[in-house]
Design a protein around this nucleic acid. Structure first.
Lengths: 180, 180
DNA sequence: CCCAAAGTAGACCGAATTGTCTACCTCGCA
DNA sequence: TGCGAGGTAGACAATTCGGTCTACTTTGGG
């Protein structure tokens, strides 16, 4: 595997499960089995490595969510599909997302609170991209009035974000009541 | 004011707005205008100071939420009251909660991911206490069937957590569509 | 009045942090 | 064949971290 990709995947896993500030460069290169110079050859700083990890996770997550909601044709189906695929994620049944430990972007935004920082902005952009995907899915539903696109997408986002928080903090992994 | 309380309030504000790992002991005592020895006289370690801050915030937050939902008598009223008071928080209109920057407990749990750590546990206990308050409020509603207590409280918690996340990450501060 | 508790200022310690640098190696390609 | 890109190992610098300690001052109650 490409060294650069290998470093990103190693750092991503460590960041995701232990938090970013809790993981040092030395730990990353040690786990990755790579020299420090190699890391700094591919990434100018820790911040750039973080951004690369966020980008990798963003791509992976959106691909998964896109696929998991691809067969939806009605509003109610989209809601159930969103809830169900997230339940699978919470139970760590989604191979490409690994062991569940909350949303990397929510977690990272908590550590980098300054809205002007590029890391915080990357987190925000991820959430906006998820919302855009939901809007696209909603517009494709037969029983969707375009006047309610905005409020419906916000509602679904609120549900999804709430589920993620509850799954991480108090360990709730199933939400049957949300499916009506 | 009591020195101990003053240190807690200073540290709480710094932790809340900048993240815990981003704030060092030296910054806390410098902003508080207090000697290092004074801080370590009241708190055995940074972790104990963090726990004291979480406890302070927990008390303050639950008092506010208890008061903000005290007059509800029906299910729909509770939902609207929860949404409205959180909107006020997001807009930093709640004096005792200060400038909004997400939920301290969600943020802190992101930095202290180990579920065995006392800090992570304090975050979890806060969320459970909020849920218990919602359950108490629900049981007091005239049109509430006890068989749906559990699912309804989980639903409201999911909404509230989702609102908080969206308010912090993408800056949404009003949720009129959730009120039906 | 006097003493103990609580306070201040700041030097200091060991460990950890990010990031740089030297010296050397390996390998593919012109 | 030789060269440059990418790799390894690890010393090193500069800074910051949490935490301890000394020496001194302030303050309130018996």
């Amino acid at each position: 595997m490409d060294k650069r990709t290998h470093i990103i995947l190693t750092a991503l896993s460590l960041f995701y499960h232990k938090g970013i500030h809790s993981v040092g460069i030395n730990e990353i290169i040690s786990v990755a089995g790579v020299a420090k110079k190699t890391m700094y050859h591919h990434f100018a700083s820790k911040d750039e490595l973080i951004l690369a990890c966020l980008s990798e996770r963003h791509t992976r997550f959106l691909n998964w969510l896109t696929h998991a909601t691809s067969k939806v044709t009605r509003l109610e189906e989209l809601k159930v599909a969103l809830i169900s695929c997230h339940e699978a994620w919470f139970n760590s049944e989604v191979t490409e997302l690994g062991d569940f430990n909350g949303c990397l972007f929510i977690n990272t935004a908590a550590e980098f609170a300054d809205p002007a920082s590029s890391i915080n902005q990357a987190c925000k952009e991820h959430k906006l991209a998820v919302q855009q995907l939901i809007i696209r899915r909603l517009s494709a539903c037969e029983n969707m009035e375009s006047s309610q696109l905005d409020s419906q997408s916000h509602y679904l986002m609120t549900l999804v974000e709430g589920m993620i928080c509850q799954a991480k903090l108090v360990g709730i992994k199933q939400f049957p009541h949300l499916k009506q």
